[in-house]
Amino acid sequence: MTQSLNRIAAMTARYYYILRSSWLRLLEIVYWPAMQMMVWGFLYTYLYQSKSAMASTAGLLLGAVLLWDVLFRGQLGFTFTFLEEFWSRNLANLMMSPLQPFELAASLMLMSLIRLVIGTLPVTLLTLLLFGFNVYAMGPGLIAFFLNLVLTSWAIGLVVAGLVIRQGLGAESLAYSIMIVLLPLCCVYYPVEALPLWLHPVAWSLTPTYVFEGMRAVLLDGTFRTDLMIECLALNAVYLGVGFATFVALLQSARHKGGLLTMGE
């Protein structure tokens, strides 16, 4: 157990060294969420001041943008940290070391969390300063939303990392594109009722749907839907298990295919 923790710490240190080595990398983590928030923030301001029917729901927009970013950046942080091993041709060194797949996954999760905090925290403060939208007003519910979205991002990150191991860098673009599939289905900017009836089961099978419905309940009705968060957490436990099993299966498949030797496109 101690050795396992030591290896997780070693890998986290390895990723931290990379992050620390370039201020441009650090800046990039904040840059994209900040720019996105500026665009949506000005739209929020416009809607809020327009006295239209949309004015009352303008806050939902910013809340949704912030939480979607947690999901999106969480997965990007996980996958990009993993891709470092491919880009530096270091994966075989790791696979030959006593590092176990779950230890690698744990260090990627930790690093995703660190990148998320670096990227999201300044943006939430920026939103408060520039647009007067306080995401922390969601109270303890925000922790539940954050936790559930991060767990989902890790589950997806594990599958993408597995696909990159199995298919090589040809699968790299999945790191950017896979989350976009979820965007229309997990009801980020609109309630589930807005979807056609036949898509409802699909939406409710996706964990982010529970979070965004929960967020709307807090911002519109002032109620925290514990039931939604518990269901979401249970579903996330399943998805995380499936994500890790997929990662291990694809790693094993790459060992059969000889993919760990070539490690390219």
């Binding site: 710490a9 890998m11 060294y17 530096s88 060194n93």
Partner: peptide, 17 residues
């Protein structure tokens, strides 16, 4: 070996692994 890490960092990381 990871090109962005220093020699000391690389040896430390692998030593710990």
């Amino acid at each position: 070996l990871p090109g962005r890490l220093t020699v000391r960092q690389n040896l430390t990381v692998f030593g710990r692994l």
